[in-house]
Design a protein around this nucleic acid. Structure first.
Lengths: 110, 110
DNA sequence: TACACAATTAACTAATTAGCTAAATATATT
DNA sequence: AATATATTTAGCTAATTAGTTAATTGTGTA
């Protein structure tokens, strides 16, 4: 599922740090890498994972590649996440409700 | 950091499913395990990870152990996450704090 | 006490992830 | 064309994670 990529992407301290760096500024891959104690290829992988999750987007500018937050998509994903865990129905939630109801009935019979 | 545990816990489809199952009902470890195609020890590990992240809590009831959402903590974590990554979120969080403060004041006056 | 049931912990394996260095690709400059 | 810079891809290894079965712990009941 699509949301899986978002959660996987967020489950990494360096990746969340990248998002924080991009929260206000647009930065090139090199500018981001300069802020981490990690090789450029390693950073590149993190950027790829964030981009696959649609949390960031990239645009080539000459020999540079600029990265920026794709915050609209992030908001959609996070909102969906909230919708899953909080009131708004999914199949699992309905089943959970049904379980609660049957348990309640059993308890009252005793 | 504390939030690291939350992200790690959420980066797993079965664990997010467990949260969804618990969104309305309180279930024992066995009742949860019965809904997954996975061994009980494997489920037990997932429950432990969720509990360490303070997303769920457990309580022994005789030979059973009941699990339930610790949703207040989850909401706090998720709200903080929004505040960190989205400029909009941080503004809203501050407003939320302000509202809470003003409500508190009002309540005490009553 | 002895036995059954619920759940966890222990010990292990297979698969995945995160990092590295070296090589390749794309663009800019001379 | 040749060379330099920015970035990514390839190939590798070490560490971590997710699952398994077997053993252990805690509780209820005959």
């Amino acid at each position: 599922m699509e949301i899986d990529y978002v959660f996987e992407a967020l489950a990494s301290t360096p990746r969340r740090k990248i998002l924080a760096y991009l929260s206000e500024a647009t930065l090139t891959a090199g500018e981001i890498a300069a802020r981490f104690d990690m090789s450029k290829p390693a950073l590149s992988k993190h950027l790829k994972i964030l981009e696959q999750a649609k949390l960031i987007s990239s645009e080539r500018k000459g020999q540079f590649i600029e990265y920026r937050l794709a915050d609209k998509n992030m908001m959609v994903s996070l909102t969906n996440m909230l919708a899953t865990f909080c009131p708004v129905g999914s199949g699992l939630k309905k089943e959970s409700t049904a379980i609660a109801r049957s348990k309640d009935k059993t308890t009252k019979q005793e």
